[in-house]
Design a binder for these strands. Structure first.
Length: 802
DNA sequence: TCTCAATAACTTTTT
DNA sequence: GTTATTGAGA
């Protein structure tokens, strides 16, 4: 392979980034500007031009998909040279360290990686033990709090010491402590632990750190905007405070704040890595200028960004097209029609429909099935999260390490063996007393305090499993799997005549071929035991999206999974308040910015054609809710956008009055939450066009003049205004929220809105958490002080607004 | 102890 | 609409 001519192959922006000398470097790479290219070429440049040994280079990213692509491309560029010693995800990097040196940070040798549902189950147990009511404190939120504590590298003790409010001190702290104790006892780590422990390991072992730093003289990090605090620290430890770090990222594509990612890491890169060189890639190779400008105009409304302007020389291209649908079925019908219309020029696999939430995919699936459009759904229920797969994996884990309490607990009664709660409790108690694992206790025999029937069942289980466990370390992986299935008659659980069961059996078959494949790919030169561990690690770290190859059919997926992908034709669906931006993100301006970035990511996936859709009403959790067009639509300059409205909307106009949403019950910040009567020229609604009270405020005009438009009569509390508002400060009096521009049925109903305080004759005072349906059918979920949540029919409840 | 049915609760995004 | 949880009965 001839050497690469870097100067010819790379553009003027990419070249300096690739040929950067010493010291930390941050490359701010806009969407489609050749981000991966910079990383892969830099690896090649280091090796070819600088004579760096590939073994001393590590490239880290977030998803397996991105890592795989990086690997392939580096491989192609390097030709005969060996690959860098590490190309993979942060978690895999950490895991590699922990498998080797986990003992130094208190891990058992064969530790197990928990997925979210395992975590949740364990946390529930921990909360029960701590006598924390799981209905008052939702395990999910407690888990989120624990996760962010770990992301901040706070151990339970420190977390407790720093907990400064009731919830953290009395709920999260004890739950965290107990959860962590259970976790270690059971020999498990969760995802957050992996990074945390890797940092800890390096901090506490100077010699090891030195070796690692020497090993990885060059560190390349992709998707830097998604790093959390723990990951930043890991980078610090490994790179010797950035010595030879090249970080690539785009602050406008940071969409993992909810997972602890700190945009500040990229925004304040120079602070963490003094003397850093900052470079920008603004030339885009993917999209038309219209798409870039429209997306740019949206994301420009974010305050937390460094700012850049993407350009291309492929030309303006066509305008974007916005469709105002009646509901999600209409939205799907129209999308399907557009897709069929474009089929001549593009193949189905060139098109993607992007949505905010997984639930939105249903309507599209239904429609595509009906219209005979092939589609590929990404995400949804993950393969490795299916119960039958988790069971079989648990058996594999158990075979590797019969002392693994988590796996033991999962399999002990699957298939049902008559080993119930009582029996298990007895066994666990006895094991705990002797300081042994449950399996050791079984091996020793002589159970006391266990019901006779249960003891018999346990003995049977022991006889069944013992020979397999015995043989486990010598059996080839595929045979081990078969032995396990055979010994346990696991597949007898399913009835081949039942459709669902048949799917389960097929899944198990698929797992079997997965095992086979893995063995063929990784089996050479490793012991069966190592191979088993590697396989188990593999299944813990991969997700379905990773295997995504472009298959025939339209791709249907969430905006999150779309990151890093590109399609000639893209539909971003569901541009409505509450969907995008999502309800749960309307509180904090920072969350709102993340929603905006999400839309930005979606829009910039498009190469040639970009379609947007919004629904007038949508079914949420079973019943229809009137929807408000997304505030982000206002941010797309009209000159880039054509609008089409559903004919069904003209045929069936409906007044929409139940529309204010967003302001939270406990923290109402009107400026950032709801946008009553949102409308834009060209988006006025047939049948409801009666203009509202003239309450135009200067801020609103600003929004419109900013985009070169006339301010409409109805005034939106626009995003600009929201962004300029500091957190916890209102930009306008709360009363302005109640200004409703369209006709409403009754004065009383008007004031029933999310966040409003109400009084009920018998239930006392409370706050409206959520509103479902409208008119006669309007239902309210009200949280009453001391009584909890109640669902009420507005028409009967006789609520008084206070 | 297990199974089935009714009911309550919950809906963001994922390594 | 779906899933997790609870309760009754076998």
């Amino acid at each position: 392979m001839p050497p690469i001519d870097f100067e010819k192959t790379l553009n003027a922006e990419q070249l300096p980034a690739v040929t950067h000398g010493e010291g930390p470097q941050l490359v701010l790479a806009g969407a489609g500007s050749g981000k991966t290219r910079v990383i892969t070429y830099r690896v090649a440049w280091l090796v070819q031009e600088r004579g760096v040994d590939p073994a001393r280079i590590a490239a880290v990213t977030f998803t397996n998909k991105a890592a795989g692509e990086m690997k392939d491309r580096v491989e192609g560029l390097l030709g005969i040279y060996p690959l860098p010693s590490f190309v993979g995800t942060f978690h895999r990097f950490a895991l590699r360290l922990l498998r080797a040196y986990g003992g130094k940070v208190g891990l058992k040798r064969e530790f197990t990686i928990l997925d979210t549902s395992d975590q949740l189950a364990l946390l529930k147990k921990a909360m029960k033990k701590e006598e924390l009511a799981t209905d008052a404190y939702r395990p999910r939120s407690v888990l989120a709090a624990i996760s962010s504590a770990k992301n901040l590298l706070l151990e339970p003790v420190r977390y407790e010491a720093e907990a400064d409010d009731f919830y953290r001190r009395t709920v999260v702290a004890p739950a965290y402590r107990r959860y962590q104790a259970f976790l270690r006892e059971a020999g498990g780590v969760d995802f957050d632990d992996m990074i945390f422990l890797a940092v800890k390991l390096l901090r506490e072992n100077e010699a090891l750190k030195k070796r690692l730093r020497d090993r990885f003289r060059y560190l390349l990090v992709d998707e830097f905007q998604d790093t959390n605090h723990a990951q930043l620290e890991l980078i610090h430890e490994v790179s010797d405070s950035g010595g030879n770090l090249t970080a690539v990222g785009d602050e406008d594509q940071g969409i993992y704040r909810w997972r602890g990612a700190e945009l500040g890491n990229i925004l304040e890169f120079e602070k963490s890595f003094p003397g850093a060189t900052i470079r920008k890639l603004e030339r885009n190779y993917r999209s038309t200028q219209n798409i870039l400008d429209a997306a740019g105009a949206v994301v420009e409304n974010n305050v937390h960004r460094r700012g850049k302007r993407l350009w291309t020389d492929v030309g303006e291209g066509e305008k974007l097209l916005l469709y105002q649908a009646r509901d999600e079925q209409d939205e799907a019908r129209w999308t399907s029609q557009v897709i069929r219309g474009l089929q001549g020029r593009y193949s189905l696999s060139d098109m993607a429909v992007l949505v905010r939430t997984n639930a939105q995919t249903r309507a599209f699936e239904d429609r595509f099935l009906r219209d005979g459009i092939g589609y590929q759904l990404v995400g949804g229920v993950r393969f490795y999260e299916r119960a039958e797969i988790k069971d079989v994996i648990a058996y594999l884990r158990f075979a590797r390490n019969p002392h693994d309490a988590l796996s033991f607990d999962r399999i002990i009664n699957r298939p049902p063996r008559g080993i119930g709660a009582k029996t298990r409790e007895g066994l666990v108690a006895q094991a705990a007393e002797a300081g042994k694992s449950a399996w050791e206790t079984l091996e020793a025999g002589g159970l006391v305090g266990v019901p006779a029937r249960g003891a018999k069942a346990l003995a049977r289980f022991h006889t069944q499993m013992a020979p397999v466990i015995e043989a486990a370390s010598d059996l080839p992986l595929p045979s081990l799997l078969d032995r396990l299935l055979d010994a346990t008659s696991y597949t007898d659980l399913f009835d081949p005549d039942d459709e669902d069961d048949r799917t389960r059996l097929e899944n198990i078959d698929e797992l079997r071929s997965g095992v086979q494949e893995f063995t063929e790919a990784h089996g050479y030169g490793s012991t069966e035991e190592d191979l088993l561990t590697a396989f188990l690690d593999h299944v813990s770290l991969v997700s379905d999206t990773d295997g995504l190859r472009k298959k025939p059919g339209v791709t249907l997926m969430t905006l999150h999974s779309a990151k890093g992908l590109e399609y000639p034709v893209v539909v971003v669906a569901g541009l409505e308040e509450g969907v995008l931006p999502h309800f749960n993100a309307q509180e904090l301006p920072e969350n709102l910015e993340e929603e905006r970035r999400l839309l930005y990511v979606g829009m910039t996936r498009a190469e040639r054609r970009l379609f947007l859709t919004t629904c007038r009403r949508r079914r949420i959790a079973g019943n229809y809710q009137d929807q408000e067009p997304s505030r982000f639509l206002l941010e797309v300059p009209e000159r880039f956008l054509d609008t089409e409205t559903s004919s069904e909307l003209f045929a069936a106009p409906r007044p929409s009055w139940n529309r204010s949403r967003g302001s939270s019950p406990n923290r109402s910040r009107p400026g950032t939450s709801s946008r009553p009567g949102a409308s834009r020229p060209g988006m006025s609604r047939p049948g409801t066009s009666k203009p509202g009270p003239e309450t135009a405020r200067p801020a609103a005009e600003h929004v419109y003049s900013f985009f070169g438009k006339e301010a409409p009569a109805k005034q939106p509390a626009g995003p600009r205004q929201a962004e300029q508002t500091l957190p916890f400060e209102s930009s306008q009096p709360a009363s302005s929220l109640t200004v409703e521009p369209v006709a409403r049925p009754t004065a009383a109903a008007r004031r029933l809105k999310r966040g409003a305080r109400v009084r009920h004759a018998s239930l006392g005072t409370g706050r409206i958490m959520q509103i479902e349906g409208s008119g006669e059918d309007m239902r309210l979920i009200v949280y009453f002080e001391g009584k909890g949540r109640k669902k009420l029919l507005a028409r009967y409840a006789q609520l008084e607004v206070i």
